[in-house]
Write a protein that binds this DNA or RNA. Structure first.
Lengths: 198, 198
DNA sequence: TAATTTGCCTAATGGTATTAGGCAAATGAA
DNA sequence: TTCATTTGCCTAATACCATTAGGCAAATTA
């Protein structure tokens, strides 16, 4: 007694996979916070309870979307870094990160959904770290400097894009793109002259 | 027919102010996302509906907590920067930011709760920008470079602390404090040699 | 075609946010 | 001190969302 009653009602073809993909799209459309089982069920023309055979609960759904986003981001980053080195690699890496975040704000938010240790260990987090180190290899930093630099890059990229998405730079000149270009350039300089002396 | 029925039941003394303060503490204890009217009412031994004469709704409550956190952060930053310049100012500013975030994780999360334009304009956001520029004054950057640098600092600080709070650096050496110190030092170097030539 | 599995549904429970209206406590006037 | 008024928290009601249990029909297998 709900939607297009086809008398006998064909099945919707739900799958964990399809739910997660649709959830990711939903997140980009209406925001990750509002990506709930209820809303997702609505999109599939299905009752909320029906999701629970494919997804453990709301948290499980969000976790899976987060893992998907992390995979996608790692894929893009890998593609960007492949065949490049030094400033070229750094720029491509940075842009891949920012472009993904701006094109997929919901997924990007999802990517920072807190994961418990086991889940995180199984996900693409490791690939992200490897990618950062691949970019930094061209700058020849010894440990622990390379680790410091990995953290700096992570902080700058995620911080900048988060602030930009939140509209932090919207109402003032120069535009966000210009600052981004300049900042990446500055990071390159910084990495080439990293104060490696203690 | 609820809690300690005092027959006649004395008033709880609710106030917008007190609700917001208690909400901020609650956020630090159980997390900003879980800081809801229902939970807050529970803390005051009061029915949820009773909050609605003091706060418009859940969003209003969260917004007020966010504004409180922004004020507190600006206060600390101002105190840290006062009487200092150059690297000294930068370090004190950075530490004030990070110390606050680590001591008050819920408030820090609240501080990044999205505000609509008018609300943001009325809040302490302006003071934050002024503080950044005060720190940067010592480095003598011409526009638009100073703006780029303001954005860089904002990105690094908020990004680093967010990642650290999320446990991003917990399971690996060196510890988060060491990277932080090193990164702030590197930022100082970067600012002193900012590639001001276009 | 009969047996079994599987997929989505209905039903039920309990939690949250929010509004409307009531009664008693606090406040101020006489 | 008593009466009137305001104010503060309560009860009641509505409408969501999340989650579990159990049912029936469709898909699958024998």
């Amino acid at each position: 007694m709900d939607d297009e009653a086809e008398v006998g009602m064909a099945r919707a073809g739900l799958t964990t996979e399809r739910l997660v993909r649709a959830g990711a799209e939903l997140a980009d459309e209406i925001g990750f916070e509002r990506t709930t089982p209820a809303e997702l069920a609505r999109r599939f023309g299905v009752k909320t309870a029906s999701l629970y055979s494919h997804v453990r609960n709301a948290h499980d759904l969000k976790t899976r979307i987060a893992l998907l986003a992390l995979e996608e981001l790692a894929d893009r980053a890998a593609l960007a870094v492949a065949g490049r080195a030094g400033k070229d690699a750094l720029t491509a890496f940075a842009d891949a990160y920012r472009d993904y975040a701006l094109a997929h704000p919901g997924r990007f938010t999802a990517a920072r959904y807190p994961l418990d240790d086991e889940t995180a260990a199984g996900g693409a987090g490791v690939r992200h770290a490897q990618m950062s180190r691949a970019v930094l290899r061209g700058y020849g930093l010894a440990e622990p400097h390379e680790t410091h630099a990995v953290r700096l890059l992570g902080a700058v990229f995620s911080g900048y894009v988060t602030l930009e998405s939140a509209g932090g730079f919207a109402r003032s000149a120069p535009d966000a793109q210009e600052s981004w270009t300049e900042i990446v350039r500055a990071l390159d300089t910084l990495l080439r002259t990293w104060p490696t002396a203690h």
